[in-house]
Structure formats: structure tokens, C-alpha cells
């Protein structure tokens, strides 16, 4: 059984440019229109969108699968936090180092993942997600992870001379990361590597016959995907100024996956739709009926899968 359906559509270029421009203007206007807490929430949505984009690269384009991307998110967050505990290291550098570490971790996990397909990969990554908080609490790692208490870091302030408060500044930092990563990802998938990813996803045998090294491509996809999600994790550490094992439970991984599927697998801008869904849906469900949050969330999720099997993003791409 196929993991996902592949969607191929191209929006007309002018329409694309107009929509892209509108989104860019809206994204820049957001921190000036909303109050402090809402800006903070918008930043978190962006962080989640980056993580979802990372998973999309893996699932939507190379046809692999992960229920445990929260683990890479956590790794990125911890590496970043580790460098920033004393406040002297440049924070952008710390986030990038987090990304690099996750790239290596992703390659390392990608190799065993090669041998697994479908259900077994789901299982291995699912248990990775469940085990992650406990791995972070392991006593041998306490020196670096701070154990149960986690790590506190300094929230970066806007540089001198820029009239923005810390929340607004962080929003723009995250937005810049999101924009750069978006361009990198779209560039990657429209080029040679991306075509190789898609070929491997749609028909590994044929891809191999065409001279694509399926093994390398799959492992590389895992690496890139983990790197992007790791950068998102690092940014989340900046945003919340605190990392602790229990922020990286199974539900983080589930949120990333649900965001991906809701936004549309293989549709990169869908990440933002998915991020908005997973960030606001629980609160919205709670306001519908206090206490039955999970039930409403689940029912909405099933309804989306039923009515829009290719995700909300898929609805625009018929």
C-alpha cells in the first residue's frame, strides 16, 4: 500500500507571485497588529510550521515516515539551549549548531530506518517519541541536559537601535529562518535532489534503474528533514527561553505529524495551515466543551481525513 498519494499541480506563476506577496506582507504586519501574547503565539506557530516542513520533506518527498520527529525537535532545542545557558554565545549560531547536530542524528537514524518500511518504521519512530523524555532524563546525560529540571536560557533582545520588544524581535528572527528554510526546501525539491527524492518515493525500483542511489537519497532525506526540524527545535528553545524533558513528549511528535497531514502531505505551504490547526485546535475544542477537548479534537481530525484526504492544502490544489 502506498504511504501517501503524490500530488502534482502547478499554480500559474502570476497567481503564485500574488499569493506569495500577500502572505509576505501579512507575515511582516503580524507583530504590529497583535499584542504581546498573540505575537508569542504567532511565533510558536511559525516554529511548528518549520518543524512540519521538515517532516514534509521526509514524508511528502522521499516517502519515508516518522512518528518521532519530536525527538529531533528536542535534540535541536537542547543543543541550542546548551550553548546559550551562559548567554555569551550568539543565538543564531547556537540554532545553526542545533541544526547541524540534528542533521548528523538524522543520518544516524536514517541508516537503520532504511531497512524498515511502512508499519515497522512507524513503530520504531513511535517508540522513539515515547522514549524521548526519559532519554533526556537519563542520569548520564544530566550534566548536559539538566535532568528533570531542564535548562534555562537567556531570551535574546532586539539589537540596539531597533524599536522592537523581545517578542516582536524573536518573531522576525523566526520568520527569517522560516523564509530562508522555505526557499532552501523549495529549491531543493525543484532541483535534481528533489526529483531523486520523488522518484525514490514513487517507485524505488525504477529510480534505482535510472541510476539513483536509493540508499543515499533516503538517508540524506532523513538528514535534511531532521536538520530542519532541529532548527525549529532550537528556535522553540529561544522563544520559550526554557527546555525541559516533558515539553518533548509523544504529543509533540503527534502534533508535527497531524499538522503535516492536515496541511497536506507534499504541499510545502501547507505547513503553516497545519501549524495553525495543531496550535489553536486544542484551545478551540476546549472552548466548545470544557473537558472533552481530546474528543472534539479527534472527531475534527477524523472529519478532515474524511472530507479532505489530501489535507486542507490539497483542497486548493485540485
Amino acid at each position: 500500500m502506498a504511504l501517501t498519494d503524490t500530488i502534482h499541480t502547478q499554480a500559474p506563476p502570476t497567481l503564485k507571485a500574488i499569493i506569495g506577496g500577500l502572505i509576505a506582507v501579512a507575515a511582516i504586519a503580524v507583530p504590529f497588529l497583535l499584542d504581546g501574547f498573540q505575537v508569542f503565539q504567532a511565533t510558536q506557530v511559525l516554529v511548528l510550521a518549520i518543524a512540519i516542513m521538515g517532516l514534509n520533506l521526509l514524508t511528502g518527498f522521499s516517502g519515508q515516515f516518522s512518528l518521532g520527529h519530536g525527538a529531533f525537535f528536542a535534540a535541536g532545542a537542547y543543543v541550542t539551549a546548551f550553548f546559550l545557558t551562559d548567554g555569551s554565545f550568539p543565538y543564531v549560531g547556537a540554532v545553526l549548531i542545533g541544526g547541524v547536530v540534528c542533521f548528523i542524528l538524522g543520518l544516524a537514524f536514517g541508516f537503520p530506518a532504511l531497512k524498515l518500511d511502512g508499519i515497522y518504521l512507524a513503530l520504531a519512530t513511535f517508540s522513539l517519541a515515547v522514549a524521548m523524555p526519559q532519554i533526556l532524563k537519563l542520569s548520564i546525560l544530566t550534566e548536559w541536559t539538566g535532568g528533570v529540571g531542564g535548562l534555562v536560557l537567556m531570551k535574546p533582545e532586539a539589537p540596539q537601535g531597533i524599536p522592537l520588544d523581545a517578542d516582536q524581535w524573536l518573531y522576525f528572527v523566526v520568520l527569517a529562518f522560516a523564509a530562508v528554510l522555505y526557499c532552501l526546501v523549495t529549491g531543493l525539491i525543484s532541483g535534481r535532489t528533489g526529483r531523486a527524492f520523488l522518484a525514490v518515493k514513487d517507485n524505488p525500483l525504477a529510480a534505482e534503474a535510472m541510476g539513483i542511489r536509493v540508499t543515499n537519497v533516503k538517508v540524506l532525506a532523513f538528514g535534511y528533514s531532521a536538520m530542519i526540524t532541529g532548527v525549529a527545535g532550537g528556535l522553540s528553545a529561544l522563544v520559550t527561553a526554557y527546555v525541559a524533558p516533558d515539553s518533548f513528549t509523544l504529543f509533540l511528535s503527534v502534533n508535527i505529524l497531524v499538522g503535516l497531514v492536515v496541511g497536506g502531505v507534499g504541499f510545502i505551504p501547507g505547513a503553516i495551515i497545519g501549524a495553525i490547526f495543531v496550535h489553536f485546535m486544542p484551545t478551540a475544542a476546549d472552548s466548545v466543551y470544557q473537558g472533552l477537548q481530546g474528543v472534539i479534537y479527534g472527531i475534527v481530525l477524523i472529519a478532515i481525513m474524511l472530507l479532505a484526504p489530501k489535507g486542507i492544502g490539497g483542497l486548493f490544489r485540485r
Binding site: 505529524l257 481530525l301 481525513m305
Partner: peptide
């Protein structure tokens, strides 16, 4: 449906 939809359900 594809496997991913099943997992989400």
C-alpha cells in the same frame, strides 16, 4: 486510504 491517513485516524 493511504497508510498515513489510517495512522492519523
Amino acid at each position: 486510504a493511504p497508510m498515513l491517513s489510517n495512522i492519523v485516524v
